[in-house]
Nucleic acid binder design. Structure first.
Lengths: 115, 115
DNA sequence: TGAACTGTTAGGCATAGACCTAAGTTACAA
DNA sequence: TTGTAACTTAGGTCTATGCCTAACAGTTCA
């Protein structure tokens, strides 16, 4: 479970904004241009572009320039990284679901083993 | 796929920091006190406490005061929210994996259907 | 060519985040 | 009852984020 990678930081940070999540949802239905994507939001285009850049730097989207148009697509590999981390964490937890009880017993029953 | 909820913002933001992810990994093996958790990091205790608070506000951990000790545990329900969002997004994408090709054709073959 | 379209860059502002030190507070222990 | 342990709160700095307007490209089309 590699954790210290800056990739996870970037992926989760990118997902921590509802504008960007909405863009990803839109892109999950198929590619779109910057202008098409921006229509759904009220913010100024340069502000919106920053969100696109954050997504792309996180590896969650890619884009390709066609003439004067920039076409964005979703790139779910980065999503897998985040999802994988979460799943493995939850897996660990499930294997230890009884640990809480045992641990708390220590504090109620100080005669048990030392922490 | 509820997206606008501030919960997802908080969950993903909380995960966007490697200190906090390390804490979650530690807690996935079982509960621990603030002091035990803090030992693994070099930062000052008040700084570390802020991370604990972020995790708790995101619903990723819970804590319980036992005497002068605060015992933290993982609370994977919030994790499921994030993981669920990611999985459903990826599901959508897989059903549309061929959309990129078709879309790009528009720009190469302007005689196709209008966008 | 020159206007219109679609981005893009530059620069500024306000808020939030991540860290710090110093100074409490509460519980346990001698 | 006094000291120590284990947080907790207060307040400060510095950087990053999210937004804006204004001005600048690169493309397309009349």
């Amino acid at each position: 479970m590699p954790n210290s990678s800056p990739d996870l930081n970037r992926v989760f940070r990118a997902l921590a904004d509802s504008t960007r999540r909405t863009v990803l949802e839109r892109l999950s239905h198929g590619p779109a241009t910057v202008g098409e994507l921006a229509k759904a939001f009220e913010m100024a285009l340069p502000s919106f572009l920053q969100h696109i850049d954050v997504l792309e730097e996180a590896g969650l989207t890619t884009s390709e320039k066609q003439g004067r148009v920039r076409i964005c697509s979703i790139a779910p590999a980065a999503l897998d990284v985040g999802e994988g981390w979460m799943r493995s964490l939850r897996g660990l937890w499930h294997r230890r679901a009884d640990a809480l009880e045992a641990y708390l017993e220590q504090f109620k029953n100080p005669e048990g083993e030392s922490p």
